[in-house]
């Protein structure tokens, strides 16, 4: 949808983004992960057109810059307005016809379960309501690209689940979504494309399904520590590791699992559990930001 070509963003001597290149795939939910200061918010501001790159450039994949709905990280709204008044204003700015405004506002409020707060002044709403209001205003006008900066920040577990559900619904409706988050579980649940930033650079990017399908491994747990036969196991294949009472078989060594099982049983070890696992997002993240 939008391509970034060697984009660098500097604030005086601080390099917030360093030579970043990637394309936001249409119809995907792109999860931006990274520690604080990694450049996630800077990237979202660049995509939103709020700041300009110091070097490099951004260009739409198709002609014309897409209409964008933005939910910023900070939940700041004009507090003197009522929830519905604010959304009516946003609808007016998005070109919604005056006759349709009320319907559009009600629909967007209903979509994020905020109908009962329509007449509340924004200053009297809770943090969860404000997160949902942020999402509601971003959805108005049906923009094809949504930029959500930490959409479930500060929400309780129920609120997080609810937010994940909204995002999945938007994805199902064909929206392209770029969201930053610190919640690995949320990203695993809702994102279909993963970008991990660290120190302003992209350290990892892949489709989520492909990322999590990578590098499966087998764990064979015995009834007691395997230290005595560690050398023997490693001699079978260098990709066999011993972690206490567990033998971990990675890559090509996975094909030797029957052989390892037989070896353990022959050496009078009881096998407690055998499981085939895949790499987790937490492991991908940890490797990327090391």
């Amino acid at each position: 949808m939008i391509t970034l070509d060697n984009v660098t963003k500097q604030y005086y001597s601080l390099t917030a983004l360093d030579n970043v290149s990637f394309t936001i795939p249409r119809g995907e939910v792109v999860g931006l992960l990274g520690p604080n200061g990694a450049g996630k918010t800077t990237l979202i501001k660049l995509l939103a057109g709020l700041i300009a790159p110091t070097r490099g450039y951004l260009r739409p994949v198709q002609a014309g810059w897409p209409v964008i709905g933005l939910k910023p990280e900070r939940l700041l709204f004009p507090n003197h307005l009522r929830v519905s008044q604010y959304l009516e204003m946003v609808a007016g700015m998005c070109g919604v016809a005056a006759a349709d405004t009320e319907r559009v506002v009600i629909e967007s409020l209903a979509r994020v379960n905020l109908l009962n707060a329509a007449n509340k002044r924004i200053k009297h709403t809770s943090k969860g309501m404000r997160q949902r209001l942020g999402l509601a205003q971003a959805m108005i006008g049906n923009p094809p690209l949504l930029l959500l900066d930490e959409p479930s920040n500060g929400l309780d577990p129920d609120g997080q689940q609810e937010m994940a559900r909204y995002i999945r619904e938007l994805h199902a409706a064909g929206k392209t979504i770029v969201m930053s988050s610190h919640q690995l579980q949320e990203v695993t649940q809702v994102c279909t494309y993963l970008v991990i930033l660290h120190n302003g650079r992209i350290r990892y990017q892949n489709r989520m399904a492909a990322a999590l399908a990578l590098r499966p491994y087998v764990r064979i747990r015995s009834d007691r520590p395997l230290a005595q036969i560690e050398t023997l196991l490693r001699g079978l294949h260098p990709d066999i590791e011993v972690e206490g009472d567990t033998a971990v078989l990675r890559n090509e060594a996975m094909r030797l699992r029957r052989h390892v099982l037989t070896l353990l049983l022959n050496m009078d070890y009881d096998v407690v559990r055998v499981e085939q696992k895949r790499i987790t997002l937490a492991e991908i993240y940890a490797e990327a930001v090391q």
Partner: peptide, 11 residues
């Protein structure tokens, strides 16, 4: 004020 970011983005 930062509360107006979502409005500016729409222009």
């Amino acid at each position: 004020r930062a509360e107006n970011y979502p409005l500016v983005v729409r222009l």
